[in-house]
Write a protein that binds this DNA or RNA. Structure first.
Length: 574
DNA sequence: GCCGTTTTCGGCCCGACTGTTTTCAGTCG
């Protein structure tokens, strides 16, 4: 995708400039621009065409000219000029923790390193020749950084990190010395992938509390421990930074370590204008502490609403909070049912009855069993006979359960075929209570083909929900390229909902796409895509992603009570 | 390189830690 290509170029530009020791604010400008571009929904080519590049935050005259040039020629002369004489592999090495631009430049100048192997070799030499600034500790530190970098290239999915973190926290909270413990950082913001964990504690005796934490059975390795901070590796290989803070600073520290970085920078700039100083210890006017015990004080001091962690990304939430216009974000308890779940009829591990019973335990008013259609052979997609059986079985189950909740919806997750046709004939779809349509094949199609495929599916009046619209798999399959504005427009026109799939591997739509859909008035559905009773619970990850996308309950069809949902479905079928 | 109810020029968030420094630079979060 063009936007991603340009974002990467700006990111690399920032690194190249840093390597050359250029002005750090100029470097920051490129970094900011890269982040800003990644957030765009619209294609840069079309923004460039309309001459609106300078409307993008962080893009001014120079950067807009560079984008223009890239759109026209797929090259940026200025970037190439800056890169001249710098080996490409060298720039990548800058992500190694403990190895910054200055150190790297020094090693490059002295040893002409070009790659990771070169770097490893020259570290030995650096020690031997007593290169200025290179003591043994620094060299060891870089070596450790290299190990960490190589092993942790991949971030962890939130669905892996959150249960591990919850378990750790519950153990930490059992320690008598500890009054409070919370997780901060990207996990608290519910990002889809997590690097390492930040845990904050309050204790009357911080140093002793830390000593006890590093002795927990969950802790596999202790990387460092001091009076205020311990760094450990827990099960699953996650690095955890535990910080002990004073009670009166807890709110400030929680705010500070939750981030994001951009959000905090923006907040502190605002604070500065009001004669305040914010840091991890509190809010200060001159020498005088004016807040910091609780997190909401930090926001209240700036006359703004308390900002939910999920949207602290400096994407307009600060302005909204100042104006008192933050959205009332969707919550897990707003959901009244699940509209995407599988059973043993296709590739699920639990029977229909088990799924329904579990949905009842969750307090749901309704659940849809949406098994695959025939072309999904590996997933045992249902042919018409098996579909008939399933309809029959659900009929029986309804009788058996009488009036007990939840209502059981006979559904399908029907494949959207190569040309946008669906994998069941319309008259079959018409007999079902709910239809989720998804792409599971031919991911290599062109942007236009994919777009048209989705538009064709949305034009089918039997389609109620488009499942995992981009079909990405986090960290392993790129999202399908599509003209998302057209997909949104088609969904708005047909009245069908787009899904936020709660599977930790998918979380699709992502936050910013969901936001764009809501802004266009498109309905959304949060689905668990559960393949077992236990997985019904993963719908919460879908809610987290929705919250990150500023989604409110009003946009989500499975917050509706049964009467409203059933009327909506009936209306779509008439 | 961007940006403007302090500014079209002169700012741009803040503090801790580490190592190697004898007063501080580099890196990180």
């Amino acid at each position: 995708m063009l936007n991603e290509e340009i974002a990467r170029i700006f990111e690399r530009m920032a690194r190249v400039l840093a390597f050359k020791g250029q002005d750090r604010f100029r470097i920051m400008a490129y970094e900011r621009a890269a982040v800003s571009i990644r957030d765009l929904e619209e294609d840069l080519a079309s923004i460039a065409e309309h001459g609106k590049l300078e409307d993008i935050p962080g893009i001014g005259k120079d950067l807009s000219e560079m984008i223009d040039e890239y759109v026209r020629t797929r090259k940026i002369k200025r970037y190439e000029r800056e890169c001249k004489g710098i080996p490409a592999g060298l720039v990548d090495l800058m992500s190694i923790p403990g190895l910054g631009p200055k150190t790297l430049a020094q090693l490059h100048q002295k040893f002409h390193i070009r790659s990771l192997t070169d770097l490893e070799h020259c570290l030995e030499k650096a020690a031997a020749v007593k290169l200025k600034g290179f003591g043994q500790k620094k060299i060891d530190n870089i070596k450790r950084g290299i190990e960490l970098w190589v092993s942790s290239q991949k971030r962890m999915l939130i669905g892996v990190a959150l249960p591990l973190a919850d378990n750790l926290l519950s153990q930490v909270r059992k320690i008598k010395l500890i009054e409070h413990a919370d997780v901060a950082g990207s996990l608290r913001r519910r990002r889809e992938t997590i690097g390492d964990l930040d845990v904050l504690i309050v204790s009357k005796n911080g140093p002793r509390a830390l000593q006890q934490i590093v002795k927990l059975p969950e802790v596999k390795q202790v990387l460092g421990i001091g009076d205020t901070k311990a760094t450990v590796i827990i099960e699953g290989g996650i690095q955890v930074d535990v910080r002990s803070v004073a009670r009166e600073s807890y709110g400030a520290a929680l705010q500070y370590f939750t981030g994001s970085k951009q959000h905090n920078i923006h907040l502190r700039t605002l604070a500065q204008k009001r004669g305040l100083k914010l840091n991890e210890y509190g809010a200060f006017r001159g020498q005088k502490r004016v807040g910091g015990k609780d997190e909401d004080e930090m926001y209240a001091l700036l006359d703004m609403q308390d900002v939910p962690p999920e949207i602290r990304e400096d994407k307009g939430e600060i302005e909204a909070a100042m104006a008192g216009r933050l959205p009332k974000l969707l919550e897990v308890r707003d959901l009244r049912g699940d509209l995407h779940a599988h059973s043993t009829y296709s590739d699920g591990k639990s029977t229909i009855e088990e799924m329904v019973e579990h949905a009842a335990e969750l307090g749901y008013e309704y659940i849809a069993l949406t098994d695959h259609s025939p072309s999904q052979r590996v997933a045992h997609g249902l042919d018409l006979d098996r579909l008939e059986q399933k309809i029959e079985e659900i009929g029986q189950l309804r009788k058996k359960r009488k009036d007990r909740a939840p209502h059981i919806l006979i559904g399908t997750e029907v494949d959207i075929l190569a040309d946008g046709k669906l994998d069941y004939p319309d008259k079959v779809l018409a007999r079902l209570d709910i239809v989720v349509a998804s792409i599971h094949s031919l991911f290599h199609q062109s942007k236009d083909e994919i777009t048209n495929r989705l538009l064709a599916a949305l034009a089918n009046p039997h389609v109620d929900i488009v499942g995992h619209p981009t079909s990405r798999l986090i960290g392993s399959r790129e999202p399908l390229e599509m003209n998302f504005e057209r997909v949104i427009a088609a969904a708005a026109k047909s009245g069908a909902a787009l899904e936020i799939n709660g599977s930790m591997y998918r979380l699709d739509l992502n936050d910013s796409m969901a936001k764009a859909a809501q802004e266009a008035g498109v309905l959304l559905a949060i689905g668990s895509d559960a393949h077992s009773t236990a997985q019904l619970d993963q719908i919460r990850y879908g809610v987290f992603q929705a919250r990150r996308g500023w989604i409110e309950a009003r946009s989500v069809i499975n917050t509706w009570p049964w009467t409203k949902l059933s009327r909506w479905l009936a209306h779509r079928r008439s």
